[in-house]
Amino acid sequence: MNATKPVAVIHFDKHEFRAPRIAVTAALDGVACYFVNAPAASKLDELGAIVETFRYLWRRECGGMILYVGHPVIRELLDDLSSHYPGLEIRSLVTGEKMRRTWDACRRAHTRNVGVKEKPRVERTEHRVAATDASKKKTDNTVGIAVVSSDGSVKMSNVDARTVLDGEFAAIRLAVRQAVESKTVRSIEILTDSLTAATAINTRGHAVNQGAGRHEASCCSELRNATALGIDVRVIWVRGHAGHPLNELAHRAAMASRRCRQWGQSSEQFRRSLTAELREVLAAAGETVQTSGLSSDRYCA
């Protein structure tokens, strides 16, 4: 992080007091400096309150700053208007000692100003095993992806990709995103039957290879995000169609997702059926799948 630039954080939340309102707090270099509690009858009102907070910060530090703001629309807007704010750097993650200190100051001030008790943080303790897969038909770019997890969930989705390999990266990214959003996962083992994807991630780390597909680049970004949050992620190759129950279910889920998309049908019935199968597998396996208790010949060293 650029040590010479001021570091700013904008924190906000919505609440009800007779009518919908939005509370926004800003902090600069470890010190809270701005607070507003405004009516928020619409999304436009919410965005307006956050934008006004940014304008206040910019009036104070118009020579540039490093800004964290949690609202994706505001981040995108400021990125689009970057030429109007020379020296502004937008962050989507709180990283580095200076920014963490500023974030903590902003959050504490926000809690005091709004007058609510701070929610206790949920400690990440869960270990999860997730199998991923992708399915692509040669004649178009629709790729079905799936994540089957030891928490009993089956996630099915579709992406647009030129190769099935890029779809495999999209599936791995989905598994990592689920771990991040869970708020409880401390470590995750992601099983993929794509030796190329597993090797790329394990040899290059989270660096993006030149010429990588967009889903590979997005996967590496999500891995960096998980690492920054302290989540231990291991991507492991497991031989496809070798009898691993999570891998087999992930294969069927990805294929069903793609076919339903191409046939214009809902995949929900398939997801429910596969979820029921998964929970039977987990019940029969006990702790074996939970701790990835698989024979070593199914892994790539």
Rank of each mutant, 00 (worst) to 15 (best):
I90Y: 09
A228H: 09
T196I: 15
T4R: 04
L57R: 00
R112M: 10
S157K: 04
N158H: 06
T102R: 03
S273I: 13
V122S: 09
L278G: 07
D80L: 14
D193C: 03
D104E: 10
S157L: 09
G96K: 04
H244P: 01
K136V: 15
S266L: 12
C300H: 14
H84Q: 11
I172C: 09
A27V: 02
A254P: 00
L294R: 07
Q290F: 04
D297W: 14
S218C: 07
R261D: 12
T139C: 13
G243I: 15
R112Q: 13
V147I: 09
R101P: 02
K14P: 02
A105T: 02
S267R: 05
C33F: 12
C106K: 01
T142V: 15
L28H: 01
A175Y: 02
G286F: 07
G264M: 04
A200Y: 12
M156L: 11
W58A: 12
C33R: 04
F169K: 01
Q265A: 15
N225P: 01
D166M: 07
V208D: 03
L282M: 14
A146F: 06
S82M: 04
S266K: 02
V289R: 08
E16G: 10
A171L: 09
F12I: 05
V36F: 03
I90S: 04
A146Y: 03
R224V: 11
T203R: 06
S153A: 15
V36W: 01
E181D: 05
I145G: 01
E216C: 10
E16I: 13
A207P: 00
Q262C: 13
A256N: 11
L81Q: 09
S257Q: 00
P86E: 04
R124F: 07
E16P: 09
V31K: 04
E181Q: 02
A23H: 10
S221M: 06
A109C: 08
A8H: 03
G152K: 10
E277M: 13
A217F: 11
H244V: 12
S257N: 03
R252D: 11
E16Y: 14
R271H: 08
A250W: 02
A32L: 09
L93G: 06
L57P: 00
T95W: 05
A254M: 03
